Computed example of a mutant assay.
Amino acid sequence: MGRKSRILTGSLAVTTAAGGLAAGAYLGLVTAAIPLDLGVGRRMRPLGPLSVDVWAPREVVFDLLAEPYLGRATRAIREKVTVLERGSDMALAAHRTPVRGRLVATTVETVRFTRPDRVDFRLVRGPVPHVVERFLLTEQPFGTRLEYTGELGTDLWAVGEWWGAAVAGRWERAVTDTFHAVRTEAERRTGRH
Rank of each mutant, 00 (worst) to 15 (best):
G153L: 01
G150L: 03
V14S: 12
Y148R: 06
R189A: 08
P57G: 13
M44A: 13
A166C: 10
R75P: 05
W157K: 07
A91R: 14
Y148F: 15
V132Q: 15
G41P: 05
E147H: 05
E109S: 15
E187Q: 12
G2T: 14
R102W: 11
F179K: 12
V52L: 10
A168Y: 02
R78H: 03
L137Q: 05
V108P: 04
L70N: 14
V54E: 03
R45G: 13
L123W: 01
A32Q: 01
V60N: 09
R173D: 14
E133F: 06
F113H: 08
W55E: 13
R78V: 02
L70C: 10
E59P: 11
A73V: 10
R86N: 09
V159P: 00
R183I: 04
R78S: 12
T97A: 11
G10Y: 06
T190Y: 06
T31K: 01
E161C: 02
M44I: 11
G24H: 10
R3L: 13
L137A: 05
L146M: 13
A181D: 14
T107I: 12
R86W: 04
R112S: 14
T110H: 13
V30S: 03
L27C: 09
A33L: 09
E109A: 12
T9V: 11
K4Q: 10
L12K: 05
Q140P: 00
P57L: 10
A13W: 05
G101T: 08
A56E: 00
P68A: 09
P35R: 06
R102D: 12
A23F: 09
R72N: 13
L36A: 12
R173P: 03
V182I: 15
V104W: 03
T82I: 00
T190P: 04
R6W: 09
T138C: 06
R75G: 02
G143I: 04
A168H: 03
G41H: 03
R45P: 00
R58Y: 00
A25Q: 05
D117A: 12
T15Q: 00
L27N: 06
D120T: 10
D89M: 00
V159A: 14
V104Y: 02
F62A: 05
R118M: 11
G191E: 15
G143C: 08
G150I: 02
G169Y: 05
R125L: 02
L27K: 09
V40N: 07
E109T: 13
R112H: 10
R145N: 06
A174T: 14
S11E: 00
V131L: 12
R192T: 15
G39K: 11
